[in-house]
Design a protein around this nucleic acid. Sequence first.
DNA 1: GTCTATATCGGGATAGAC
DNA 2: GTCTATCCCGATATAGAC
Lengths: 202, 202
Amino acid sequence: MQTTNTTEQQIIEAARKIFMHRGLTGARMQDIADEAGINKAMLHYYYRSKDKLFDIVFTEAVEMLLSRVSAIFTADLLLEDKIQSVIGSYIGSISENPYLPLFILNEINQNPDRIIQRFVNTPSFPNIQGFVMLLKEEMDNGRIRRVDPVQLMISVISMCVFPFVAKPLMKAVFKIDDERFKLFIEERKTFVSAFVLSALRP
Amino acid sequence: MQTTNTTEQQIIEAARKIFMHRGLTGARMQDIADEAGINKAMLHYYYRSKDKLFDIVFTEAVEMLLSRVSAIFTADLLLEDKIQSVIGSYIGSISENPYLPLFILNEINQNPDRIIQRFVNTPSFPNIQGFVMLLKEEMDNGRIRRVDPVQLMISVISMCVFPFVAKPLMKAVFKIDDERFKLFIEERKTFVSAFVLSALRP
DNA sequence: GTCTATATCGGGATAGAC
DNA sequence: GTCTATCCCGATATAGAC
C-alpha cells in the first residue's frame, strides 16, 4: 500500500466519485478528468475506454458492498448486543460511502448480467447457508420467534440501506436538512436494533 | 377518459417504459420512438424536446408514488388488520409498477431541485402531522410500544419498497428466479405486517 | 507521460417534402 | 400528421508533437 497518489490512483478515485454520483450514462469523461486535475486524454492513456474504467469502479464497488453484507451474514449470533454491533457498523460503513448503494442498485438494474459475472468468482460472497442454520437453531431453542430467515435478512438490510437511498426524498417530504438527517442516521442505529429485537421476541 | 390510443398517449406510455428503465440520461429518443412504433421526428412534433417529455413522465411518477405514501399516512389506524391492509395494498401497488421506486429515487438524486418544485403544489402530499398525532395517541394509551414515529414510518416504507429496488441483487445473491421472487413478494405482505406488529407489542 | 488538436460517432433536434 | 434526410452538438476516442 503506497501512500503517494500515483496518477492511476487519482484517476480511479475521481472516476469513482463521478460514476457513483452520475452513473455510467450520466458521467462524462471530461468531468472525471477535471475531478482528477488532469487532461482528458490521460484517461484513455491509462484506461483504454470509458467502459473499462467503469468496470473497474463497478467491480470495486460490488466488492465493497458484498463484504459489508457478508459481515452481517457471518456474525456469530443474531441476539442482543451482537445484532446491535452488526447493524451499527453496517449503517456506519454506509455513512462513509452514502452513494454506494444506489449506484450499485441502479447499475445492476441497467445491466443485470454484469453482476452475475462478477459474483461467480468473488471472494467475499456471503455465507447464507451458515447463517440460516444459525438462525434456525435460535428458533428451535425458543430464544427468538419463528420467522423466515430470508425475509428477516432482507428486512434488516432494507432498514439500514433505504434511508441513504431515499435521502433526498426524505429531505423533501419531512423537510429536514443535512444536520437533522445526520442525527436521524445516528439514532437509526439504536432504533433498528431495538426494533428488530423487539420483533423477534418470542 | 378515452379508450382509443391516440398517438400522444402511445408516446407517453412508451416514454414511461423507456425512461423508467433507463433513466433520463440512459434513455434514447430512438428507443422511445421504436417502443411507440412511430418515427423519431414525431416525438419532437408532439413534445418539443426530450426534457419536456421526461418532465411529464417524471411528474406523473411522483404523483403516483406520493399518492401511495399518502395512503399509508392517512390510514385510520396503525393496528392489527389496519396495518395489514395498508402494507398489503402498498406492496401490491408497487408490484404493478416495480420500476417506479428506483426510477424516482435515482432521478431525485441526480437532480434534487426538480423534486422540490414538484412538491410545492402537489395535491396528494402526505399528511404527516395527522399521522404522527395518531401514533402518539396509541402510545399514550399503551396499545403500542413507544417509538419514534418517523423512524417507524421509514422502516415500514423501507421494508415494502427495498425488495423491488434490490430485485436483481437478490436474484443473484439468493439465486432465485422470477417465479420465486413473485412468491417472496406475496409472502412479504404478511411477513412485514406481522414483523411490525410484533415489534410494536408493548 | 503529458499535452493540443482533431477525428469520429451517437443522439437530439430541425427542415422540408408529401 | 407523418415521413426522410440532414444538421449540429456534445462526448468518446485517437493522432501526434513535445
